[in-house]
C-alpha cells in the first residue's frame, strides 16, 4: 500500500500526498511530512494547510505556522481560526482577517424563525435538530466574540 501511496503522491494526487505525509509524521520524519503536506497545500487541498501549520507551530516557526493557519482559515477551518487568534491575539490585522472570514459565513444561531436560510445553511430548520454546520456556526460566534473582546482591549 505504501508503495502505491508514494507512487500516487509523486504523480500529483494531493490526497495521497497527505496520506504519505501522515505516515512520515507517525515515523517522526518531519521534513518528509512537511514536503508532502506542502505539496497538497499548493494544490489547494484544504485539509493539508492546517496539518502543515500545526507542524510549524510545534517547531516554534511562528511566521510559517501563521502563514498556513491563514490558508486553513481561508478554507473555513474553525479549529485553525481559534489557533490563529490565540497565536496573534495582539495583531489587529490578523484578527480582522479572521473576522472577515467569519462574517462571510452564515452565523445566525439565534434566529430560529428564519426557516429557509437555516435549511440552506444548517441542513435543517427544525428546532430540536443539531447538525455539524450548526455546531460550526456556534464555534464561529464564540471565536468572533473572542476577537471583538481582544480588539476592545487594544
Amino acid at each position: 500500500m505504501r508503495d502505491s501511496i508514494t507512487h500516487w503522491a509523486e504523480a500529483g494526487d494531493p490526497n495521497a500526498a497527505i496520506q504519505l505525509a501522515e505516515i512520515y509524521l507517525s515515523e517522526g520524519k518531519i521534513e518528509e511530512a512537511k514536503k508532502f503536506f506542502g505539496q497538497a497545500t499548493e494544490k489547494n487541498y484544504r485539509p493539508a494547510a492546517k496539518k502543515l501549520a500545526e507542524i510549524f507551530h510545534k517547531e516554534g516557526n511562528l511566521p510559517e505556522a501563521i502563514n498556513f493557519y491563514k490558508k486553513a482559515v481561508e478554507g473555513g477551518d474553525v479549529e485553525a481560526m481559534e489557533k490563529l487568534v490565540d497565536l496573534c491575539s495582539d495583531d489587529e490585522k490578523i484578527l480582522n482577517f479572521v473576522l472577515e472570514i467569519i462574517d462571510e459565513k452564515y452565523n445566525k444561531i439565534y434566529v430560529s424563525s428564519d426557516f429557509f436560510a437555516q435549511m440552506m445553511n444548517f441542513g435543517s430548520s427544525r428546532l430540536s435538530e443539531f447538525l455539524p454546520e450548526q455546531e460550526k456556526a456556534i464555534e464561529r460566534c464564540r471565536i468572533k466574540n473572542k476577537i471583538l473582546k481582544l480588539k476592545a482591549k487594544m
Binding site: 439565534y110 430560529s112 428546532l127 430540536s128 456556534i138 460566534c141 464564540r142 468572533k144 466574540n145
Partner: peptide
Amino acid sequence: PDVLAEALCQAGNLHYTGEGTIPQ
C-alpha cells in the same frame, strides 16, 4: 416544551459564545 427548551439552549449559547458584554 421544545419551544421552552430551545430558549434555554439559546441562553446557554449566549454564555458559551460570550455575546456582547456577557462574559464567556
